[in-house]
Nucleic acid binder design. Structure first.
Lengths: 152, 152
DNA sequence: GCGAAAGCGTGCCTCGCGCACGCTAATCTG
DNA sequence: CAGATTAGCGTGCGCGAGGCACGCTTTCGC
């Protein structure tokens, strides 16, 4: 293994993290999508899009938040019409959270904006490089040091 | 340009972001380095390592925090002996923040742990892939959609 | 020189978060 | 089948972090 590759990637990842968590970026990606969508509520929206209809507790486990925090954020999204609650038909205690059509469209629009932005930047790259990067990044995330099940 | 590359990278980046901001990861990387180093104070420590000795206002601009927030976090780090304040010899109003030897060692130790973790994961990769990934990731961060000066 | 501006630290207010509580419903047990 | 335990939900409450405004000192422009 080449010494220094880990250092280089660590430094670059740090830079990426700093850049991508900028408030300005989030504001651009969600501009015009309503007051309710911000850095706090979007993870709930996005997580729910990923998991599909589920309980607040499950969603909290998925995105690493306390159950009550999810409830409060979901309140805001529900009020904005992006999310709705339905009693779980299989369990009368449980309440299922699910996106409304407007909520799904919000998530789609945001992801579309991000993808377009990435695609624009990559248009200057040789196509082979873009494909390689996509493939290697995917592998890094799936199997790499941040994978769900630590390999060691 | 291949359609879908932007989508794929966007999704993978989202996954990476979720994984890498997990509290558990940060706890592992800073374990045993003292109570004062946490998710709040580390950006100050790390930012100061990058910029070198500078004022609280400058550091705030660098890492995207309010001046007063930097001051408060710096207080904790100073109390732990990781950072010290010196009056700016060139400007009697200003106070320069700088890492102590212990502070620099803390940053080094953390980065070393992250680099080692990455290197371990990459040891299973063909060396050419690892080098390609490092290079492409660097280019993506430097010139990509999150670069400092937007290209469009 | 003198007013405007910059830099710093601190008091106050606001807001988000997690814990604890009370409630309802499902599940377990004898 | 009835009582007890557990799981799920929403909400009141205390705590901690962040931003604004203020007062102070020093520097800069005219």
């Amino acid at each position: 293994m080449t010494n220094g590759t880990g250092d280089e990637i660590a430094e670059t990842l740090g830079l990426l993290l700093r850049r991508s968590t900028r408030e300005q970026l989030h504001a651009q990606l969600t501009e015009g999508l309503g007051e309710a969508v911000d850095q706090l509520t979007y993870p709930v929206l996005s997580g729910l899009a990923r998991t599909g209809s589920c309980s607040a507790a499950d969603l909290g486990r998925e995105i690493g938040l306390d159950r009550t925090t999810v409830t409060r954020r979901a309140d805001r999204l529900q009020q904005a019409g992006l999310l709705h609650r339905t009693p779980d038909p299989a369990d009368a205690r449980a309440t299922l959270l699910a996106l409304t059509a407007a909520g799904e469209e919000t998530v789609r629009a945001t992801r579309r904006r991000l993808a377009a932005r990435i695609e624009t930047s990559l248009s200057a790259w040789p196509e082979a490089d873009a494909r390689d990067f996509s493939r290697l990044l995917r592998r890094f995330v799936e199997e790499g040091p941040f994978a769900d099940a630590p390999s060691h």
